[in-house]
């Protein structure tokens, strides 16, 4: 594990230290989900695994896309593509706050020197039909993490309750590294033979995607894809639970959920293109939520969702 007595020198070192820390606390260190999502919460390792009775502990980096936040790489803090670090533990352990503070120490934030505060912030995801109570965690007046006890996901009560931690990695790292503009942040060690800054990697993509999100993406196609994803999600869930080929009970909760994720991202893109009115917005969010709810309904009937005898035919 990284030496927490020294300060990290790069963005990736902060990620590596978090990975090491949460691995040492027993989390399965997963890889990012291979789809476009708006936040780490959308990873099925959080959304679906927060459901049902089975214990769970996972940590992962999740590249996240928020098309409307694109600023062509010019804003010091805003990006349309950024990284979240996500930890989810079910049931939430009694010392989760202490575990979390340990992770701050691991990346060089000493609570004896910095003012760490848990400030009320209740979390809600209208698209996932999910909510929880918790805090935003402040370090010297800056929000560095979101800390949530999930109460409901996809319309289902969470029993047991998961504890979820979300770190906005760029913002946190900029603070730890003392950087004022995200593009100036060292991505690898500045002493490396080929030192790379965040901007070396992402400035061009921020420009390209900003143009794409605001002006480029074909809206007719996006509308059609949204409808397709919605239809496919519902079609997959409408299959008989028993596969006639092998007689096994196989509910396609995850493939259906992929379509829900797709619909959510397509909605975000359409929103960035400015073609969704205020009233329609609510309707679209409601449609994605309806999909998330159906996927959650399906997942809790599966073995991973804690249904007893779910695997048996």
């Amino acid at each position: 594990m990284a030496d927490s007595a020294t300060l990290p020198r790069s963005f990736q070192e902060i990620i590596l230290r978090l990975q090491g820390y949460w691995a040492s606390k027993g989390c399965a260190v997963l890889q990012p989900y291979d789809m476009e999502v708006g936040a780490g919460t959308f990873h099925p390792a959080t959304t679906l695994r927060a459901l049902g009775s089975k214990a769970w502990a996972a940590a992962y980096v999740q590249p996240s896309r928020r098309p409307t936040d694109g600023r062509y790489g010019e804003n010091p803090n805003r990006l349309q593509h950024y990284y979240q670090y996500q930890v989810i533990i079910k049931p939430s352990p009694p010392d989760l706050q202490e575990l979390y503070l340990g992770s701050l120490r691991a990346i060089g934030l000493d609570p004896g020197l910095h003012d760490i505060r848990f400030v009320e912030d209740d979390w809600e995801s209208p698209t996932l039909g999910a909510w929880g109570l918790g805090w935003e965690v402040w370090c010297d007046g800056m929000e560095v993490s979101q800390f949530t006890y999930f109460q409901q996901v996809g319309g289902h009560d969470c029993r047991p309750v998961s504890g979820e931690l979300t770190y906005g990695l760029e913002r946190l790292a900029m603070y730890v590294l003392g950087i004022d503009h995200v593009m100036e942040m060292p991505f690898n060690d500045p002493q490396s033979p080929i030192p790379l800054k965040y901007g070396d990697i992402f400035r061009q993509t921020e420009e390209e995607y900003s143009r794409h999100n605001f002006d480029g993406a074909t809206t007719e196609m996006l509308f059609q894809h949204f409808k397709d994803a919605e239809a496919e999600c519902e079609r997959l869930l409408a299959f008989d639970a028993v596969d006639p080929k092998n007689g096994k009970r196989i509910v396609m909760a995850h493939p259906a959920y992929d379509q829900c994720i797709k619909a959510s991202h397509l909605f975000n893109l359409l929103d960035a293109r400015g073609v969704i009115s205020v009233t329609e917005r609510q309707a679209y969010i409601g449609r994605v939520r309806a999909l998330a709810k159906k996927c959650a309904d399906a997942f809790v009937t599966t073995e991973a969702g804690g249904a007893s005898g779910g695997a048996a035919a």
């Binding site: 049931p91 939430s92 352990p93 209740d122 109570l133 006890y149 969470c158 029993r159 047991p160 309750v161």
Partner: peptide, 9 residues
């Protein structure tokens, strides 16, 4: 507003 946590009710 109140909440549950862990495995309790």
């Amino acid at each position: 507003k109140s909440m549950r946590w862990g495995s309790g009710s």
